[in-house]
Design a protein around this nucleic acid. Structure first.
Lengths: 215, 215
DNA sequence: CCCGATCTGGTACCGAGGTACTGGTCAGTC
DNA sequence: GACTGACCAGTACCTCGGTACCAGATCGGG
């Protein structure tokens, strides 16, 4: 049984989604909310919600901000952003906010139901209309990961240090973060530089970013 | 009428796809090819192909490389990569290569037909199984709101220096590249750090990358 | 014309970064 | 037990990065 929350400030939209979803035997509408705040409250009350259909434009707290705050809640539901706006920026922002799906309200009832099942299964879904924009974005940021970190045979600890270098930390901060002495950090840094062929920590930082070590 | 090319080294797969697609009145199978080279030849012969279903693993010229070379041909068809491998790297590579769709062969006939129509309409399509990986990738590369460099009010020269810092150059190299003395470079660097609020050049380098100063 | 911003350069200084060693603990392997 | 690799830590040393402060040259605008 898939437990779903419907989050939209328009009563009519909530009712429509509810009718569609309640027609499915394996889907249960567990909560409804009219704004992001109510949504977050509902999630905190009921940690068993699997999927949330969330509108972007809402009073009090918009859907994207609510999705971001959701990350701090344990057992948070997977979010499908459902919107009338097919603006590319919204897609990318929604994804960046942690959404696992992006649907346009003009989609069919079958699409909506399929999306809920897909996301509940741990996968993700995009409306075809916005998939192109996402692909353009991916293409713009280059292929897979330009740098394969495995090539350098870094030890786990060295990888930790490299990640922190990529985050812009200096040796002292790395030492504090990893509960090490400066000397040890320097040793690791030296090894990382040698293994990666970087001349200094700037090169290592660039490498770390290109390898996707920094969020 | 949507004109489709089927590119796969396995006869059985081509026949299967052909059967499925020919069952649709609005779809015409205009070409078949057993490897990337044949595919490119077919596209050059017949510039009216709208959509191509392309396998990755093929002799002579693989699907991704063929897709990349396709970009040089006018009126090139939109490519849907169809593969048995759901490896994330393939998805991202395919997108980077210019594919407008990525399907797994385990999908249904209806999915295949819908994908062809979607891509023919100028949109894009991803199998739900791989959409998650693409979304993770987008999230990893940060939100649409990168870093707006204009906020920092950098002078043109300072922006030059920042870009070179982001490329991993040290002060000496920057001096040589810009025909300056070390002193001048240091002055600029200090100003850049002050204006951007970075503590050291590592932070500035990260900023430069996030601002897109480094390709 | 003067004023301000920008670009350029210099000197002096200091701390962080980085290297080169040495040496210790611990876990797993032969 | 001996050996290896990862991890941790220290000392000594030097270079580079960065700051502070200053100053000349240029240029556009009030």
């Amino acid at each position: 049984m898939i437990r779903v929350a419907i989050v939209d400030d328009q009563q009519l939209v909530r009712d429509g989604f509810g009718l569609i979803l309640r027609s499915q035997p394996d889907i249960h509408v567990a909560a409804e909310a009219a704004d992001g705040r109510q949504f977050l409250d509902a999630v905190r009350r009921d940690p068993r919600i699997d999927v949330a259909l969330v509108d972007i434009r809402m009073p009090v707290l918009d859907g994207l901000q609510a999705t971001r705050e959701l990350a701090a809640i344990p057992h948070a539901p997977a979010v499908i952003v459902v919107t009338t706006f097919d603006d590319d920026a919204y897609v990318l922002d929604a994804i960046a906010s942690g959404a696992r799906g992006f649907l346009l309200k003009r989609c069919s009832a079958a699409d909506l139901i399929a999306a809920v099942r897909t996301v509940a299964a741990g996968e993700a879904i995009l409306s075809a209309e916005v998939t192109g924009a996402v692909l353009d974005r991916v293409r713009a940021t280059g292929p897979a990961t330009r740098v394969d970190l495995a090539v350098y045979q870094l030890t786990p600890r060295e990888a930790d240090v490299l990640a922190l270098i990529g985050a812009g930390l200096n040796n002292n901060e790395i030492a504090e973060r990893l509960f090490l002495s400066m000397s040890t950090v320097k040793t690791h840094v030296t090894n990382v530089l040698a293994k990666t062929g970087s001349r200094d920590r700037v090169g290592a930082a660039i490498l770390a970013i290109q390898a996707g070590l920094t969020p």
